[in-house]
Each structure stands twice: as structure tokens, then as C-alpha cells.
Amino acid sequence: MKLLLLTLATLLLLSQLTPGDAQRCWNLNGKCRHRCSRKESVYVYCTNGKMCCVKPKYQPKPKPWLF
């Protein structure tokens, strides 16, 4: 029984550590990827050279120029 519980706990922990999970960026609102989905756009680049894909609602609004 103890071996079964140990196996289940190990499998649960390993399922949380997925290797394909993307690195977070832009105040944890974006993900570092090679390609962005249609609903995302690139605002900055990550430290690993990938694009930081962020949904438009999380990007800052451009301010108008004041002369």
C-alpha cells in the first residue's frame, strides 16, 4: 500500500513538471514561444531569444505625442 501511494505521489509531481511548458514573460501575462497564436502579438523578446507572445488586452496603450 505504501508503494502504491509513493508511486501515485511521484506521478502527480511529474505531471506538474511538463517539459513543453513555456517560460512566462511580460509581468507573467505572456509566454516565450517561437510562434504566437492568432490571438496574440509580439511586444518584447525574451532573454532566450524567443518572442514574448502577449494578448492585446495586456499590452500597454500607446500614448499620443505631445509637442
Rank of each mutant, 00 (worst) to 15 (best):
C36A: 11
N29T: 15
C53T: 04
W26N: 00
R33E: 03
L6T: 03
L13I: 15
Y43W: 15
C32Q: 00
N48P: 04
T10R: 04
R35G: 03
Q23R: 05
R24Y: 08
K39S: 05
S41M: 07
N27T: 04
Q16M: 11
A22H: 14
L6Y: 11
R35V: 04
Y58D: 10
K61C: 06
N48T: 10
C32E: 01
L3C: 12
L12H: 12
D21H: 15
L11T: 13
Q16D: 03
D21Q: 08
R33H: 00
G49V: 00
N29H: 10
W26Y: 15
T18R: 14
A9P: 11
R24F: 06
P60K: 02
N27A: 07
S15E: 03
R38V: 05
L5C: 09
Y45G: 02
L8R: 08
K63T: 06
L4Y: 13
R33M: 01
D21M: 12
Q59E: 11
R24W: 12
Y58F: 15
C25V: 01
P19R: 11
P64E: 02
C25K: 10
G30E: 01
C25L: 07
C32Y: 01
C25G: 00
N48S: 13
L66V: 02
L4P: 09
C25T: 01
Q23E: 15
C25S: 06
C32L: 02
Y45V: 00
L5T: 11
R33T: 05
C52D: 01
E40A: 14
P60E: 04
C36I: 05
K55V: 00
S15G: 13
P56K: 15
M51F: 05
R33L: 12
K61G: 12
